[in-house]
Simulated assay, not measured.
Amino acid sequence: MKRIAMIPARYAASRFPAKLMQDLGGQPVIIRTYQATVQTQLFDDVYVVTDSDIIFDVVVAAGGKAIMSKKEHECGSDRIAEAIEDMDVDIIVNVQGDEPFIDKESLANVLSVFDNDPKEEIDLASLMFKITDIEEISNPNAVKVIVDTNNVALYFSRSPIPYPRDKDVDTIYYRHKGIYAFRKRALLDFQRLPMLQLEATEKIEAIRYLEYGKKLKMVETDVSGIGIDTPEDLEKAKKVWK
């Protein structure tokens, strides 16, 4: 199977504009993420796919591979689907552009889902990790996921799920880590299928796959990582980088 990584990269970001161009150890965040993804040696190719001339130029100048989006897109999956439509690939991994501390073991475990699926029943795979902090569980910016006994996703929400009505139950909460691995057909289907009510309400693109009956396998990881969504996140990342 041919496997590639795609890093969707928007210049504008509502919470932290131009975050991917912020300096992290002498290089922009997007370059650090690109380099970390290449260094895993898990992929046949790695690309940044962007709507920004600034990001495109900085990636190419650093010796990386970049693709310019032809259309406007509401989410990373749509952006990647356009880019890979005519590519001869089997598995596409969506690596978030603001994740410079990419974890090779977690990525390898996500890819292994497809190695262990000879009947090709799994459409896509993603990551989750346990959380216990009450503020994080209640935080709408932390997307939670619930799964069945085979770790196939049942639902994603910004609300605490499951709701702890019975306080005596030892409830486990999982936070979704937004790295996806897709079969090509599932990604192209996503682009063609219109957004439905649940996705529109929660603003979580993974819900679209569930609403249309796709099978999304979750892989548990112990690595939460550092996603750079705010200036405060960037300061934390700089300390870790040092």
Rank of each mutant, 00 (worst) to 15 (best):
K217V: 01
L124Q: 11
V219E: 02
D133T: 02
S112R: 15
T33H: 09
K2E: 02
D222Q: 14
D168M: 12
R175H: 04
T33C: 06
F190P: 02
G227K: 10
Y11A: 10
F129T: 09
V169C: 07
L216E: 11
A13S: 11
R10K: 12
H73Y: 14
R165G: 13
E211H: 05
E120V: 01
L216K: 13
M6H: 07
V110M: 12
T37R: 14
I91W: 04
I134L: 13
K119R: 13
I228C: 03
D115Q: 14
P17V: 06
T50Q: 15
K19H: 07
T171P: 00
L216D: 03
E105W: 04
A9G: 01
L124I: 07
V48M: 15
V147P: 01
R185A: 13
F114W: 06
T40M: 14
L187C: 08
R192T: 09
K203H: 09
S77G: 03
K184A: 07
D189G: 03
M218C: 13
D123R: 14
V113H: 04
I31C: 12
M87T: 03
P28N: 04
S106T: 10
I31F: 08
K214F: 15
L20T: 02
L107H: 07
M128L: 10
A62F: 05
V143C: 02
M87H: 10
V223H: 15
G225L: 09
R10I: 05
K238M: 10
F101Y: 09
V223R: 15
G63A: 08
K119T: 01
D166K: 14
A206H: 07
V59K: 01
A36Y: 10
E136G: 01
E235Y: 08
D170T: 06
L198P: 00
K177F: 02
E211N: 08
A5E: 05
D88M: 15
A237H: 05
G76K: 12
D98M: 08
S126R: 14
D117R: 12
E82K: 14
S157F: 05
I7Q: 10
R10S: 13
F182S: 02
S157P: 01
I55K: 03
F56I: 00
L188R: 09
E74P: 00
Y163C: 08
K214M: 13
I55A: 02
